[in-house]
């Protein structure tokens, strides 16, 4: 393509047309991509309310939230003590137990029950299941051990078990999400 005066208008026109094409194609792409994001009905289902009154001390229940298991454990005094006795500096993912529970409700531990390594569900919810070396949870896929605060202590997982957003609506009712 030349650069003479007569060619300037042609260059400009073709450049304009090219930009229109590129912009149009770009904009048209977005609805396709965005259609793969969570739909409105999926987003609307993002809260779950759980009645925790039937969970006795030392027991755990698993509820579904956003298609994932959420562990709710009613901890014993011994378990709380064990969680607080650890030296934070020695932890792979340094977090105090107090940061992982609600104030004055430290008997209740609410966790996303998915191993932070590669997404398996750790065992330890039932009394009969193995709870690993730190009396919390144990992921059978690649051998990650979590303690009574759900913190990673040993194994390949990089992070502590995640905390879902939740709040106490009353002493016996929590809303997750």
């Amino acid at each position: 393509m030349g650069h003479g005066a007569g060619e300037t208008r042609r260059d400009f026109l073709q450049l304009t047309a090219g930009s229109f094409g590129a912009v149009g194609a770009g904009i048209a792409l977005w609805p396709f991509v965005h259609s793969m994001n969570p739909a409105k009905d999926t987003l609307a289902l993002s809260t779950t309310e759980v009645d925790i009154s039937p969970i006795r001390k030392g027991q755990s229940i698993t509820v579904m939230w956003r298609g994932k298991p959420v562990f709710i454990r009613h901890r014993t005094e011994a378990e709380i003590e064990e969680a607080n006795a650890v030296s934070i500096a020695d932890l792979p993912d340094k977090q105090d137990d107090a940061e992982r529970v609600k104030k004055d409700k430290d008997q209740w531990l609410v966790l996303v029950g998915i191993c932070t390594h590669l997404g398996c569900v750790p065992t330890g919810q039932k009394q009969t299941e193995t709870r690993g070396e730190f009396n919390g949870w144990f992921c059978p896929c690649h051998g990650s051990h979590y303690d009574t605060s759900g913190r990673i202590r040993k194994g390949p997982a990089p992070k502590n078990l995640a905390l879902p957003p939740y709040e106490f609506l009353s002493d016996t009712l929590i809303k997750i999400g």
Binding site: W30, P31, F32, H34, S35, N37, A39, K40, D41, T42
Partner: peptide, 13 residues
């Protein structure tokens, strides 16, 4: 109907 109502841009697709 869900595509039409809830999926992002589903009505247009």
């Amino acid at each position: 109907e869900r595509i039409d109502r809830d999926v992002n841009w589903g009505w247009m697709l």
